[in-house]
């Protein structure tokens, strides 16, 4: 009887820990190989990372129209692309929300927003919401800097764009720029993971 009880406790413990691991263990860690994708851009064309033959890597940013934090970073995201696309690290914007829940993030709205802000980077729709869970993005904006290697696109940085969402002028640490600069110089990245508040990615469940 005692062993049975012990066994039951053990089973419960294993189940609980299994759930815990699942809850916060989803998505990529630094050093993982990031999946490629084939997602529709605002111009109707399909975009994959493999299309970028000359890229040294990518600044993948999960972002959207409707989150105030994402909006606060729009100009800075565009500036990142302007600065780093020519150096081999283009910005790839991916909109991960379910557009039934957030109609303000539908394709027409994405097109309108990109036009109004003059986005020069691809702004893709994660239709079917299959890509963001693989990366482990939980919010917008959420950045993944990838380095292209023979093994694939290796995750080198995960987190925020910089340390001040309110005002670009007050930024002290440009996390993403520092990460990409380090990669371009072949140095190791000093801060490879950061956290920031963002809007949870909207799903139906």
């Amino acid at each position: 009887m005692k062993t049975l009880k012990l066994f039951a406790v053990l089973v419960v413990a294993v189940m609980v820990s299994a759930f815990t691991i699942k809850a916060d263990g989803g998505g990529y860690k630094i050093g993982d190989i990031a999946t490629d994708f084939n997602l529709e851009n605002i111009d109707g064309k399909m975009v994959s990372l493999s299309d970028y033959k000359d890229a040294k890597g990518f600044i993948v940013i999960f972002t959207c129209n409707t989150c105030p934090y994402a909006v606060a970073y729009e100009d800075r995201i565009e500036a990142l692309n302007k600065k780093y696309a020519k150096k081999g690290y283009p910005v790839i914007g991916i909109m991960p929300n379910d557009t039934d829940i957030k109609p303000g993030d539908n394709m027409e709205s994405m097109q309108a927003r990109a036009k109004a802000k003059g986005f020069t980077f691809p702004y893709l729709m994660d239709k079917g919401q299959e890509i963001y869970p693989k990366y482990g993005a939980t919010k917008t904006p959420h950045v993944y800097v990838l380095e292209k290697t023979k093994k694939g696109n290796v995750v080198k940085y995960i987190g925020a764009i910089d340390d001040n969402y309110k005002d670009a002028k007050d930024v002290k640490i440009k996390y993403v720029e520092n990460a990409v600069d380090a990669l371009l110089k072949g140095n190791s990245i000093e801060v490879d993971q950061t956290r920031a508040i963002g809007c949870s990615i909207k799903t139906k469940s």
Binding site: G159, A160, D163, N164, Y165, K166, D170, Y175, T194, R195, A196, I197
Partner: peptide, 9 residues
């Protein structure tokens, strides 16, 4: 508090 990387953790 703008230093979210500090306080979120």
């Amino acid at each position: 508090d703008t230093d979210m990387n500090r306080w979120v953790a």
